[in-house]
Design a protein around this nucleic acid. Structure first.
Lengths: 206, 206, 206, 206
DNA sequence: CGGTAATCGAGACGGTACGTCATGTCTTACA
DNA sequence: TGTAAGACATGACGTACCGTCTCGATTACCG
């Protein structure tokens, strides 16, 4: 019984927020983002495509970037997919990450993500939101897998999980963002294997 | 018998390009970039700080991003420093990469690099230049180290060097850009070790 | 049964146009025009003096010239003053034209009018507006006087009124624009007398 | 005899001025002026069409307007045409003015002249040159005709010739510049007749 | 015949204004 | 109170032209 989403259906006064408008805005934003990239999308354009007033957008999202972040999350996670237990950390990680990278390379997400990272670098507040809602969304499930692997003594308890996560996600983001080489399944496996090999090696030293 | 880039001292017609202006523009740009980030730097501002006309900037650089790229390179690499031979691939790589990452975290380069990556995602032409001049500048020396290690049979000849490079640079860029954790020397060593452990493991399997 | 210009109080949607801004723009423009001449007035300057954004100016006036035209009309004619009947065509014409020329020489209008004429020569669309709103504003009342004089048989019915108008206004504009000699009351009278003498002469020939 | 062009063939040092360049510049300017109007002609454009450097133009003409004025005079007056004596002032005036107005309406001179007048209003120095070289070029011959008519007692000696000239040229410039009605031969005759009728009328009063 | 000096081409430069565009705020009337 | 419509201030954009400048090359004369 976690989370206890208090939020007691407090009966708001005045006209309620239009759900149609909300969906229209997020949908139009996602569509425009993927076809043009964030910089080329203007708020006027979003408003027009969503059949909505610009003021309505600004009432609910403070900046274009925060709107883009939510639109991307909304477009992305219809089904957050809880990964099943494959028996090994390697298998669990691949079951988690491979579908994600496949999705990533299916459409030009890299362009939008790069723009969000840029904004995150500039606006610390947005950076916090970006990391919490976007990065951690993949990182936390992976972290859980590591914890489970430690519990069942598959990997050493001293393992620095945060570093391990960076060793896996780092190369993936690298290819996604720099585009110097394709983000293939094989590459994902190499990243996972290498990160895990590090622990094996570390352990064998011990 | 290499190309002997003669560059036939062809006596240029017309007024020669002002070297003062060029340096002023690059200097002002670098300074402003590091203090404000690319998005907040306006061309008017650069022109004013450089004591130069905006038209002069646009005559030589087509976009703010291309100017930023060159300014960053100019500010960065006075001497690209050829790394000495430490005897081992691990030592060579650390000798190459550690000073670079120290430089990276000394000033807010991550913010600017993120913006350049964003532009590289949007403008393919700029992307090619960015990768050739910025990414390869570190990647190629590292690649050379791997080749040398293969020659002296320190690592297997079948090693996929490109993947290895991504396994090293990926995590570093990841922390630089996402800023979720600091880019410490220890982290750099972990990345290098992990990438190399991959080969050792691969070899031991054989 | 005239047109009954109903103008159905149609409740405009959206934020209404700012009357403050409109007046500020026209006022600032008129002031700057008369002190500097049209060429030296920049849109930025008008915007600043009017406490208004440049975009707001361009929303309502397509060019600097069209703005200048309206500003001049606005500054000029608060009350177009219907001339009284003096009993003779000559008297009526002088009553109409003399105050106008006095106004003309009171401030450097000639400079601005010359610029408007130049633009009218270049942009036919503007030319049509210029003639309709600026030239005809004086010409039509004068034309009416001629019609009345014909009705009461003061001048021949065959009189080519358009030519007559040019014979009066031509010399006045000539001195206004070329500035080779002053635009005195005496000169205005000479122009009117000469134009009328032509008809008398023509009639006496008959 | 006349004009005594002093300018004593003083043997200049250095490379002499290129006559080819001078003609090229004036020719290109005149051609561009008539096809585009002064405002749309840029000095770079003139330089390119004339196969000449911009610096060369500025060496000999201080402003675009002064260049335009000279180009127009150059293009215009191949033969200044001394008008013959027709026996009457009216005939003499028409012989002088009619060919001029025919030329005026043959090509879009009005547009250029309007621009020159505008500049003359702004820059007094240019205004003086404009009047001396352009306006007086037609006005002085006409003035001479009036003087001759006075000498032979065709018109009263008290005639205010300057006003008379304005009564003739004013209407012509009016139609040329405003373009509200065509500058026909008939109109020119009406202007001349009206101006002369004024004297007759004035005389008959006496 | 070599030196001096003005001119020429090419084209880079500082400066100024242009007209457009996007952001985020606001003011209406309507729901 | 939420919304569509749309005007608004702000400020940067990238372009265009002006008039000046700095080169090297050319073309006269003068000694």
């Amino acid at each position: 019984m976690v989370e206890q989403q208090q939020q007691v259906e407090q009966p708001r006064r005045g006209r309620p927020r239009s759900e149609t408008a909300r969906k229209g805005i997020l949908g139009a934003t996602a569509k425009l983002l993927l076809s043009q990239g964030l910089a080329s999308v203007s708020m006027d354009e979003v408003a027009e495509h969503a059949g909505v007033s610009k003021a309505t957008i600004y009432r609910w999202w403070p900046t274009k970037e925060s709107l883009a972040l939510e639109a991307l999350l909304d477009e992305w996670d219809t089904s957050p997919s809880s990964p099943r237990d494959t028996g090994s950390l390697r298998g669990d990680l691949l079951a988690l990450i491979r579908p994600w990278t496949r999705r990533l390379r299916a459409r030009p997400y890299g362009r939008v993500i790069a723009a969000l990272i840029t904004e995150a670098q500039t606006d610390p507040e947005f950076g916090a939101v970006y990391r919490a809602r976007f990065v951690e969304r993949r990182r936390e499930p992976a972290r859980a897998l590591f914890r489970r692997a430690i519990e069942r003594a598959e990997i050493p308890a001293e393992t620095d999980v945060e570093i391990a996560l960076d060793l896996i996600f780092g190369p993936i983001y690298h290819r996604l963002l720099h585009g110097h080489a394709p983000l293939t399944d094989r590459f994902v496996e190499a990243a996972v294997d290498s990160a895990l090999a590090g622990f094996v090696a570390a352990r064998s030293k011990t």
